[in-house]
Design a protein around this nucleic acid. Structure first.
Length: 427
RNA sequence: GGAAGGGUGGCAGAGCGGCCGAAUGCACCGGUCUUGAAAACCGGCGAAGGUAAAACUUCCGUGGGUUCAAAUCCCACCCCUUCCGCCA
């Protein structure tokens, strides 16, 4: 959620920032433009309501005092009976106005940081750096490699659950599990994160705190008969571990990593990546989350990005870092670096990790605060990054490690996790 | 699923329809004392909106109701704990 004081005081600046995402966001009829009117209405009705409440409170107090003194108060009480009704009406209106204002605010995305490049879509993203030597020879797509080796079974996924589900078998399954362990171990042992194991189901409040709700309900799997959803990312439960808390500043930064399955309906991506396991309804991911002092948000973003990149480097997978443009960053994000891994079958880089700073946007929504230097509670800054998406990592390993004889070389650091196996061969 | 009990400030835990945003203890912050610390003593200490600062308003699980006045009374819902049942 954007800061409501800043919304009033820096309206023009924020509007310009928002428009960098998409000019529709500040157009007539947008949540942004509605919010301004709703704020004025809200303040106006509240002032009226509060004045009347103040009067009711003071008269009520007086009635109590007079009664105790034995005086007759029936006249005043009769008069207050009328006023009480008016209070109720105004109070209801004030609550509605406040609610309308807040729900408009909830629909407004975060303001992009000034270091985020201009642009409407991914074509304007800016490459920051590259690592590794991408192979340029002809490599089959991972689904052919995986099926030939007997470790990927897309038909089974369809049979069991539907399209965009898959089954991993044998060494492939062990590799999926090994990747998860390897990534968690690295973040815990070398990057200083505390591992947490969290529910894969979250309630409405939790999903609102990180920004998936109310706007993106269609992207989530909702549980029948309950106001709860399957999580689309570990970011949701892990960040919300601290919802409604006021943290001691000495406890910052808080660093967590977690493995969870992730569930996405992919409502808007029909026809994209329909083959293979690039885009699944269910996938595995190791996520890093940090809660930091607001001043440290951007430096921490660099740090998280390095932590994610360290996994790719350890696996010897070529990648590049991309600074997403204003039109391409997510709803809650202030700034995002994507890590894109080289996929030789497609001769291009594909997203494998997304590292974002949310500034205080989520901190305000989820009411995660710390006691600031002034003694007043202030929203923390939150960040997260995939470290990494496991299914896509498996894809990258299959393609980058593929040999002309059809086998796949397993990266050295993973071998201890798969019984010291050096390569995957057809059985 | 059945039964009982319970949701109050960071925690524990009082609370008669008005004098209750709320006793008390712990924790925390500042001070006295001390070489330093502990103890003891003194003082401070919830959040949100609002304001230049105040005033003022709201918040005792959530939503409604009764009343001039609700943490306190009534109704509904949610959650937690314990016991029973079921169960990885």
């Amino acid at each position: 959620m954007i800061d409501r004081k800043a919304f009033r005081q820096n309206f023009e600046v924020m509007q310009a920032g928002l428009a960098r995402r998409n000019s529709d966001l500040v157009a007539e009829g947008s949540a942004w433009s509605k919010a301004k009117a709703l704020d004025i209405a809200q303040r106006d009705i509240k002032a009226k309501s509060e004045a009347l409440q103040a009067e009711r409170n003071s008269v009520s107090k007086m009635i109590g005092e007079k009664k105790r003194a034995g005086e007759d108060v029936s006249d005043i009480m009769k008069k207050m009976g009328e006023a009480a009704k008016a209070v109720k009406v105004l109070d209801t209106q004030a609550k509605e106005a406040e609610e309308a204002f807040v729900s408009a605010l909830m629909e407004i995305p975060n303001i992009p940081h000034h270091s985020v490049p201009d642009g409407a879509d991914e074509t304007s993203n800016v490459e920051i750096r590259r690592w590794g030597n991408p192979r340029q020879d002809e490599v089959p797509p991972h689904w052919d490699i995986g099926e030939a080796l007997g470790i990927l079974d897309f038909d089974a996924g369809v049979k069991l659950a539907g399209s965009r589900f898959s089954v991993i078998r044998g060494v492939g399954a062990r590799l999926e599990r090994g990747l998860m362990q390897f990534m968690l171990d690295m973040h815990v042992d070398q990057h200083g994160y505390e591992e947490v194991w969290v529910p894969a189901i979250a309630n409405r409040k939790t999903l609102t705190g990180t920004g998936q709700l109310p706007k993106f309900e269609d992207d989530l799997y909702r549980l029948e008969g309950e106001d709860a959803f399957l999580i689309p990312t570990a970011e949701v439960p892990v960040t919300n571990l601290y919802q409604d808390d006021i943290l001691n500043p000495s406890s910052l930064p808080i660093k967590h990593c977690a493995y969870t399955p992730c569930f996405r309906r992919e409502a808007g991506s029909a026809g994209r990546d329909t083959r293979g396991m690039i885009r699944q309804h269910q996938f595995d991911k190791v996520e890093m989350v940090q809660l930091v002092h607001p001043d440290d948000a951007l430096t921490t973003l660099d740090e998280i990005t390095k932590h994610a990149a360290a996994i790719l480097e350890a696996l010897d997978l070529p990648y590049r870092v991309v600074n997403l443009c204003a039109g391409d960053i997510g709803f809650s994000a202030q700034k995002t670096y994507d890590l894109e891994v080289w996929l030789p079958s497609q001769s291009c880089y594909r997203e494998i990790s997304s590292c974002s700073s949310f500034g205080q946007f989520q901190g305000r929504r989820a009411s995660i605060r710390f006691r600031s230097e002034s003694g007043k509670p202030e929203a923390v800054a939150t960040l997260n990054g995939s470290g990494l998406a496991i299914g896509r990592t498996l894809v990258a390993i299959l393609e980058n490690g593929w040999q002309a004889d059809g086998s796949v070389i397993i990266p050295k650091v993973l071998r201890p996790y798969v019984g010291n196996l050096e390569r995957i061969e057809a059985s």
